[in-house]
């Protein structure tokens, strides 16, 4: 498994703002077709890491390779082609508020593919149904959606071009536990059918247990611990210990283990 080249390879990454260093010589690999959960204390730089990988935040040092391409060495066209191969679900959904749900999902298709309106409509409805929405929701505007629906539409838009990697920034935050559980399951199913790699920033312990193959813990600007949930439970790192063996973590662990 570890012999196959990683989908995302981050080496020696340094990112900071002003005098503050957020990520300090960080190394990380994301393997093909896995769901990697990235956790860490608030302000540990999880979202910064995600935004740096997709190129929204400049880095001071280090290299990032996505799908075998070094982001420093690609030209404009290659970069655009690369961006078509990943989809991003932003924390607040980031739906275009002046477009309907259907138009939001169709936006990447319209810009990048040369396909008929009929196929575009059918694909938009198909994606909406994949994420558990009905075609009737297609005519709604983002301001008319609930939090859970917004996340689903944002996921449908992230999946619009059948990306190879999906970046999820706190996909279950702000959802009730049942919706969050459904969302975890949805991500799991989609990952299996579409064979995508998922990079998920999360705070949700349930998501880590139910959806993630592997977990990376960010602390002090580095990856402090990395591995499956059982590795996490045995880790001696103080923050990891507190996180997974704290009150909320251990009750979940007990439940999962007895099942």
């Amino acid at each position: 498994m570890s012999e196959t080249p990683p989908v995302i390879k981050v080496r020696d990454l340094v990112v900071g703002f002003g005098t503050q260093t957020v990520l300090d010589h960080l190394d990380m690999d994301v393997r093909p077709s896995e769901i990697l959960g990235v956790v860490g204390a608030s302000g540990a730089g999880k979202s910064v890491l995600l935004r740096t990988i997709i190129g929204l935040i400049p880095r001071r040092e280090g290299s990032i390779e996505v799908l075998g391409k070094d982001l420093d060495r690609v030209d404009e066209n290659e970069r655009r082609a690369l961006e078509r191969r990943w989809g991003v679900l932003f924390q607040q959904g980031a739906l275009f508020s002046s477009l309907t749900v259907k138009q939001n999902v169709q936006f990447p298709m319209r810009e990048n593919l040369d396909i008929s309106q009929r196929l575009m409509d059918e694909m938009a409805y198909a994606k909406l149904e994949l994420v558990g929405l009905s075609p009737r929701d297609g005519e709604k505007f983002p301001s008319e959606l609930s939090g859970g629906m917004t996340k689903r539409v944002a996921l449908a838009r992230a999946l619009a071009l059948d990306p190879e990697i999906v970046f999820l920034d706190e996909p279950t935050s702000g959802l009730d536990p049942i919706s969050a559980g459904d969302f975890d399951e949805l991500i799991r199913t989609l990952q299996q059918t579409l064979e995508i790699t998922v990079f998920m920033v999360t705070h949700d312990l349930e998501s880590l247990y139910n959806a993630c193959d592997r977990i990376a813990v960010l602390a002090d600007g580095k990856v402090a611990a990395e591995g499956t949930i059982s590795v996490m439970l045995e880790s001696q790192h103080p923050w990891v210990k507190m996180y997974f063996q704290g009150k909320r973590g251990s009750s979940l662990a007990d439940r999962e283990l007895t099942q």
């Binding site: 409805y125 198909a126 149904e129 994949l130 075609p135």
Partner: peptide, 12 residues
């Protein structure tokens, strides 16, 4: 199989 179920009802 996943696609088999979609677009069954006519679009609104």
């Amino acid at each position: 199989e996943e696609m088999h179920g979609v677009n069954r009802e006519p679009p609104p």
